[in-house]
Design a protein around this nucleic acid. Structure first.
Lengths: 151, 151
DNA sequence: CTGGTTGCAAAACCTTTGCAAAGTC
DNA sequence: GACTTTGCAAAGGTTTTGCAACCAG
């Protein structure tokens, strides 16, 4: 956290209270969080704050490669700090469950995609979507979910 | 096209001019299109029409399993008719290029995901995102793109 | 002090909803 | 004729922009 503040300062950005708060929130969260969740204080984990500033600071953190956002279905973006071993998120399109797997678990899959499709795939911006084991066993037919708000 | 109209009628829906127009547009398009593109007539391929009706009709077609939408990055949804051999879309995160591959090309990949992650993956709602061969060769470092409008 | 940042208000963008008028079966 | 569907207007939810006041370095 101090480290990230130093990175920002070293690159000519200032570390204001609002900016520090966004960093705190991202550190405190154990999962990707929305700007709105940060603004409302992550259930008391950090002070409430202004949504606009949060968006602006998240944008800065993304530009600086310190954070990124992804889309877990429709609804607002979810943000996370960038880390060395980034997990890959997996969403069940039936029950909406969100799992995460170590990115390295997907190396073989990325290699296969490289091979078959000619793209070096990343599952960072859009997660892997599918039907989880539980839903596979339970539900019968029917397809598409991805409810929740806007996209 | 007539077939789809019959399906709708058989299920108790009416086939109005506006509804037919959405079907025409989806047939005319050789790629996933946005509601806005349909509304503005797909460059003269179909008559211009009202955006609200288009959204309502696209929703109906999705409910009826005749069409679906997907997200090619940020910006508005893209809609397509459902077909037997649905292609899978692949987006380059560097140059924004959109390719499509036969869904069957991904069978091995889906099997690997089933195996490693325990999900039966689908690349329908969110396309596969990665770096294409051309960009792999050209650009050096740098990550994330997915520009264009809202999500 | 200087200029990056904030917070509020307002706009922008995509999608949905309300409702009277029009159209389908 | 009964009941869907339309088209317009307006609202909704998320993200961005304008701008004066504020604050970090």
């Amino acid at each position: 956290m101090e480290d990230l503040e130093d990175v920002l300062r070293a690159r000519g950005h200032r570390v204001s209270a609002a900016r520090r708060l966004v960093l705190m929130a991202l550190f405190a969260a154990d999962r990707p969080v929305t700007a709105e969740e940060i603004a409302s204080g992550l259930q008391g984990q950090v002070p409430r704050s202004d949504l606009t500033s949060i968006y602006r600071n998240l944008e800065l953190l993304e530009q600086q490669g310190l954070a990124y956002h992804l889309h877990l279905g429709h609804g607002p973006r979810h943000y996370r700090l960038v880390e060395v071993d980034e997990p890959c998120y997996v969403v069940c399109e039936r029950c909406e469950r969100v799992d995460s797997v170590p990115s390295s678990d997907l190396d073989a899959i990325r290699a296969a995609i490289d091979d078959r499709v000619g793209y070096h795939a990343s599952f960072r911006h859009f997660p892997l979507v599918g039907v989880c084991r539980a839903c596979m066993a339970t539900s019968s037919g029917r397809a598409w979910g991805i409810r929740e708000g806007r996209s």
